Simulated scan of single mutants.
Amino acid sequence: MSKRDYYEVLGVARDASEEDLKKAYRRCAMKYHPDRNPGDHEAEVRFKECKEAYEVLSDGGKRRLYDQHGHAAFEHGMGGGNAGPGFGGADMGDIFGDIFGNIFGGGGGRGGPRRGADVGYVMELDLEEAVSGVEKRIEIPTLAECGDCDGTGSEDRKLETCSTCHGRGQVRFQRGIFSMQQPCPHCHGRGKTIANPCKTCHGNGRIEEEKVLSVKIPAGVDSGDRIRLAGEGEAGPAGAPAGDLYVEVRVRPHDIFERDGDDLHCEVPIRISQAALGDTVRVPTLGGEAEIRIPAETQTGKVFRLRDKGVKSVRSRAPGDLYCKVVVETPVNLTQEQRDLLDKFEATFTGENARRHSPRSSTFLDGVKGFWDRMVS
């Protein structure tokens, strides 16, 4: 399979600056990095493709050769012994440290332990709690700093520089034409080793515990909103900074209202007599009750808008509206007297008189008649 154009791989113009190339490579690498796509062979191929393209285009000499001769510049040795992709050029370790330091554990790429992992927590709220705001206490299982060794993992709090990675926390290895790096297998990315492990945490520097926190939920949140509590995630290994806690809000379905952004929607059942003669009905809102006036001859599905009776979200300056859709209810459990009255009422709908009082029904019947006429002809 022929190689794709390097500029196309990175998604940049042929006159792209060094900074544009670096930004494009970062975007590409973050999208296809194997740590973010475990087991995805296509993503691994794309990642290698992005790396190869950047290695060439970020080197002035290689880029000039590529612009003149394309891929042939390297496939046939036109660039000399050190001209091919994967030799010389930019220090990919520096770029990997910048890009992936915070995405895949943070902090460990340039020597030193990674920060603690971020923790997610899903908090379910009633609609009323989400709209008005609330403070909730939560319990989360987490890794906390070991108090007996102050998070060092060492009984005597003494750490020695790792002899394998010399304190960098990572080691380099060659895989074909690519120079890769990974956490040091000896010190597990710490850059330090422990001669006398702590008996409480067994050298890990962290212990499992249940953490109790009080979380303030601001008024107006909605499902999918996240609240970040800095430093309340897992403690970092060997005294590294803790990760963050992200509380994701999920609003439970409500018995009456359905939320749509800042607006609320509800259905209001009314009797046939109210729809025909008109009436004033009281409807619930999140702030109490309100009235809507039902005009005479109102049809089912008519929507009434109550301004500012919706939700004032955390992002909006003004509250939304409440939309009430009336539904004309068919009466049930009728008494004999009520049945007799309805029979007398129905008897008044005869001939053209019925069409005058039921415009939608008449339109429907006209449509049906036209349909059958067309079918017969």
Rank of each mutant, 00 (worst) to 15 (best):
D340S: 12
G97T: 14
D373Y: 08
E49P: 04
L306Y: 01
K312G: 10
D94W: 09
C165L: 04
C187K: 00
S17D: 12
Y54K: 09
S223C: 01
H357Q: 12
L264W: 04
R168L: 09
P241N: 05
G60L: 02
A29L: 13
Q181H: 12
C149V: 05
Y32F: 15
T330Y: 04
D373A: 14
Q299S: 11
V314Y: 04
V122R: 15
N82K: 13
D308R: 14
V171S: 03
L65P: 00
C162H: 03
R250Y: 03
V9F: 06
G351R: 14
V221Y: 08
G167F: 05
G191Y: 02
Q336S: 07
A230N: 09
G278N: 14
N333C: 01
G231R: 15
V56F: 02
C162A: 06
E145D: 03
T348S: 14
D340F: 06
V171W: 01
G70P: 09
H357L: 13
G370V: 03
R14W: 00
A13K: 13
C28P: 00
A90F: 12
G106P: 07
A72F: 04
E209P: 00
Q170N: 07
S154V: 01
R226E: 15
A230G: 10
E139R: 10
R374Q: 10
C149H: 03
